[in-house]
């Protein structure tokens, strides 16, 4: 599904990504973990065609994210951290605009189906600016899956949400993965969310990928650790040493 080969991203004073090699299989829910400034958002920005890698290659379903960027955008969905959407438009108007940009046919039907799936139909005629953060996050997810993407990129999807909101988003992501078969790639700090949601995880630190494997394999490998948090800190400490 997603294959990153020797991907690096260099800025004038910092190496944001250093020779990243990563493979995310079809149908996975991949949690990308790392400290602030580790390179998670940079990686996600490259994968979602927002920025170019300095070197290396990324392909999604065999399509190069640089050379075939328009085709790649047709099969990906994206939700940035803290998305505001267009506050003066209703939920439906936002989704109609963004859905048409994603070349969704019969967009109103797609909107109805998506809102039903997310349990959000009653808010379709409400202006986005009156919605709570959790509701806006749902609208953000709705716009990212209207066109039934092959892969969904989420940047800290539960950031700033209360426990109920986080649980809702978690359920929604599991439903999207199960019903649409969409591969999910999400940046997150929330280790508890990862254990409840993800099938695969990757840990990045200072631009370097420390680990990427299925959650089961990692738990088997670190049998002596009691939690993912312990595993995370042990791996991170290994990097620091």
């Amino acid at each position: 599904m997603l294959l990153a080969e020797h991907v690096s991203k260099q800025y004038p004073n910092v190496v944001a990504l250093d020779d990243l090699n990563l493979e995310v299989p079809d149908g996975a829910i991949f949690g990308f973990l790392g400290h602030n400034g580790a390179g998670k958002t940079t990686a996600l920005s490259i994968f979602s065609t927002l920025i170019l890698p300095t070197s290396g290659r990324v392909t999604i379903q065999g399509l190069d994210v640089v050379k075939d960027n328009l085709k790649v955008r047709g099969i990906l969905g994206y939700l940035p951290e803290n998305v505001s959407l267009y506050g003066d438009l209703t939920v439906r108007e936002n989704l109609r605009f963004l859905g048409r940009l994603s070349e969704v046919r019969k967009v109103d039907q797609a909107i109805d189906e998506t809102l039903d799936m997310l349990g959000f139909s009653q808010w379709s005629e409400s202006k986005v600016k009156i919605l709570s953060k959790g509701m806006r996050q749902r609208v953000g997810i709705a716009q990212s899956i209207l066109h039934k993407p092959k892969i969904l990129f989420l940047d800290e999807p539960t950031s700033g949400l209360d426990p109920e909101g986080s649980a809702d988003i978690r359920e929604i992501l599991l439903r999207i993965n199960a019903e649409l078969g969409t591969t999910i790639f999400m940046n997150t700090h929330m280790l508890s969310e990862v254990t409840k949601t993800c099938t695969d995880i990757g840990i990045i630190s200072h631009g370097k990928l420390l680990l990427a494997d299925t959650l089961k394999n990692i738990e088997m490998q670190y049998k002596d650790c009691n939690s993912l948090e312990e595993i995370y800190f042990r791996i991170g400490k290994g990097d620091a040493e």
Binding site: L70, R73, Y78, L85, S102, E103, Q143
Partner: peptide, 8 residues
């Protein structure tokens, strides 16, 4: 960011 990730 949303607009930049649409196929346009």
């Amino acid at each position: 960011r949303l607009l930049f990730t649409k196929p346009i």
